[in-house]
Simulated scan of single mutants.
Amino acid sequence: MKRIIALVIAAIMSVSVLAGCGGGADLNKVMTDINSSYSLNLKSLESKDDLSKYYSIDPEGVKQFAAEIDSNNNAPVEIILVEATDADAASEIEKALAARYNSIVSQYASYTPEKLDSVKKCKVTKDGNFVSLIVADNAEEILQKYQESIK
């Protein structure tokens, strides 16, 4: 009888541990889905250090991320999806991505004003600890797909 009770308690504990892991999306899977839907050919950022290098994001504040950028600069395409470790880190990441977005707007205003309207349709978003910068021709559709995946 004691063994049965012990097994039941162990099973309940296992289920409760797994239930706690369910909140959130796998951002690499989200990026894969975006790439398959929109046939993007972008360069992946591989490490949290890349986020620091390109966006001045503190790696300690990043729980997970998926990031891809246009490596040949033919068009303004950057998709940065980040889950922060907490609300404070999410706010800091939002500031860093907003600074990058403003830089992109300035760059395209100066050098390729014909593409500026498409860049202005893009934006940085924050939903809880999830922060994104999506700059692409289909930004609104990509953002919707992303937001659906993190709910």
Rank of each mutant, 00 (worst) to 15 (best):
K2A: 06
K2G: 14
R3H: 06
I5K: 08
A6N: 03
A6C: 03
A6H: 01
A6P: 01
I9D: 00
A10C: 07
I12T: 07
I12R: 00
I12W: 05
M13A: 13
M13F: 04
M13L: 12
V17R: 04
V17H: 05
V17L: 14
L18C: 10
A19W: 09
G20E: 07
G20F: 05
C21T: 13
C21E: 06
G24F: 12
A25M: 01
D26M: 09
L27I: 04
V30S: 06
T32L: 04
T32D: 15
D33C: 04
I34T: 08
I34M: 12
I34S: 10
N35T: 07
S37Y: 00
S37I: 02
Y38W: 13
Y38K: 05
L40H: 01
N41H: 11
L42S: 12
K43Y: 05
K43D: 08
S44K: 08
L45P: 00
S47C: 02
K48N: 11
K48Y: 01
K48F: 02
K48T: 09
D49E: 12
D49G: 09
D49I: 03
D49C: 03
D49W: 02
D50N: 14
S52A: 09
S52H: 09
K53E: 08
K53W: 06
Y55T: 06
S56R: 10
S56A: 14
P59D: 04
E60L: 13
V62Y: 01
K63S: 15
K63T: 05
A66Y: 05
A66D: 12
A66F: 03
A66R: 04
A67H: 04
A67C: 12
A67D: 08
I69K: 08
I69Q: 07
D70W: 06
S71T: 09
S71A: 15
N72W: 09
N72V: 14
N73K: 13
A75V: 08
A75S: 14
P76L: 00
P76W: 03
E78G: 03
V82F: 07
E83N: 10
E83G: 02
A84L: 08
T85L: 01
D86C: 13
A87R: 11
A87F: 08
A87K: 15
D88L: 12
D88H: 11
A89K: 09
A90M: 12
S91A: 14
I93D: 01
K95L: 06
A96Q: 07
A98S: 14
A99M: 05
S103R: 04
S103K: 09
I104V: 13
Y108V: 11
Y108Q: 13
T112Q: 13
E114A: 15
L116Q: 01
S118I: 08
V119K: 01
K120E: 12
K121E: 15
C122G: 03
C122I: 02
T125Q: 13
T125F: 06
D127Q: 12
G128W: 07
S132K: 00
S132E: 00
I134Q: 02
D137W: 05
N138G: 01
A139D: 04
A139F: 00
I142S: 07
Q144P: 01
K151N: 14
